Amino acid sequence: MYYVQRNEEGQLTRVENEPFTGMTGEVFTQTPEITAWNNARNVVDESLQHKELLQRSDLEMVRVLDDLIFLLIQKGVITITDLPPMAQVKLMNRAQARQGLGGLEDLLNSDDQGIF
């Protein structure tokens, strides 16, 4: 059994397996409408999972980009002044924050000597 809420046009706005406040009816069998709702919910849930994975990896990629920029500067491929002024400020702020980690930074990557 499915507990449903419909809008004024009769379209599903919510489907649950348990009764809920605001429900407007019950559907006793799996109908094409319920199947379509569940398929759409699965697509949305999967999209949200992918979005969460990307958001978590975004945070990890910041460190990778920091290290990449440091390496390019260290090897003389680029200089800090090649970057836009706001990027320079952000990189310097991040470099200071990473150096502020002190001993913790050494646990993460012992050959980092600073970005500049």
Rank of each mutant, 00 (worst) to 15 (best):
Ala40Ser: 11
Arg56Val: 13
Ile78Gln: 05
Leu53Asp: 08
Val62Pro: 00
Leu108Gln: 04
Thr81Cys: 05
Asp45Thr: 10
Val15Met: 06
Gly25Lys: 05
Asn42Lys: 15
Ser110Leu: 06
Arg94Thr: 12
Thr13Pro: 01
Gln96Glu: 15
Gln49Ile: 08
Thr35Met: 04
Glu18Asn: 05
Asn42Ile: 04
Leu65Glu: 04
Leu83Cys: 09
Arg94Asp: 00
Leu72Glu: 02
Leu101Asn: 08
Met92Asn: 09
Gly114Leu: 05
Gln30His: 08
Ala97Phe: 06
Thr81Lys: 12
Gly100Ala: 10
Ile78Gly: 02
Gln30Phe: 13
Asp45Ala: 14
Glu105Pro: 01
Pro84Val: 11
Gly25Ala: 03
Asp82Ile: 09
Val77His: 03
Arg56Tyr: 12
Ser47Lys: 14
Thr31Asp: 04
Asp111Asn: 14
Ala95Glu: 02
Pro85His: 12
Leu71Arg: 04
Thr31Tyr: 01
Leu12Gln: 05
Ile78Val: 15
Ala36His: 13
Arg63Ser: 12
Ile80Gln: 07
Leu59Ile: 12
Asp112Ala: 06
Arg14Phe: 09
Ile69Thr: 09
Leu101Gly: 05
Asn38Ser: 02
Val4Gly: 01
Leu107Val: 12
Lys51Asp: 07
Glu9His: 09
Thr35Asp: 03
Gln96Ile: 14
Ile34Ala: 02
Asn42Val: 06
Ser47Gly: 06
Pro19Gly: 02
Val43Gly: 00
Gly103Asn: 08
Asn109Glu: 10
Glu18Trp: 02
Glu26Leu: 09
Arg41Met: 15
Leu53Ile: 05
Arg94Cys: 02
Leu68Arg: 06
Leu83Met: 15
Asp82Thr: 14
Leu65Asp: 11
Lys75Gly: 03
Leu72Thr: 07
Thr29Val: 12
Thr29Trp: 03
Gly114Ile: 10
Val43Gln: 07
Glu46Trp: 11
Glu60Thr: 08
Leu101Val: 03
Gln113Asp: 09
Asn109Phe: 11
Arg14Val: 03
Ala87Glu: 14
Arg98Tyr: 09
Arg41Cys: 04
Gln49Leu: 10
Leu108Ile: 09
Trp37Ser: 01
Ala40Phe: 06
Ile78Lys: 03
Asp45Glu: 15
Leu71Gln: 07
Tyr2Lys: 01
Ala97Gln: 14
Gln88Leu: 09
Ala95Trp: 01
Leu68Lys: 07
Phe28Ser: 11
Glu26Phe: 06
Leu65Thr: 06
Asn42Pro: 02
Leu83Phe: 15
Gln5Pro: 01
Met61Ile: 10
Glu46Asp: 07
Gly103Tyr: 00
Ile34Gln: 00
Leu65Ile: 10
Asp106Asn: 12
Asp111Pro: 00
Val64Pro: 01
Thr29Pro: 03
Arg98Ala: 04
Ala36Ile: 03
Ile80Gly: 03
Phe70Trp: 00
Asp45Tyr: 11
Gly100Lys: 09
Thr29Ile: 10
Arg63Thr: 13
Leu53Phe: 08
Thr29Gln: 04
Ala87Cys: 07
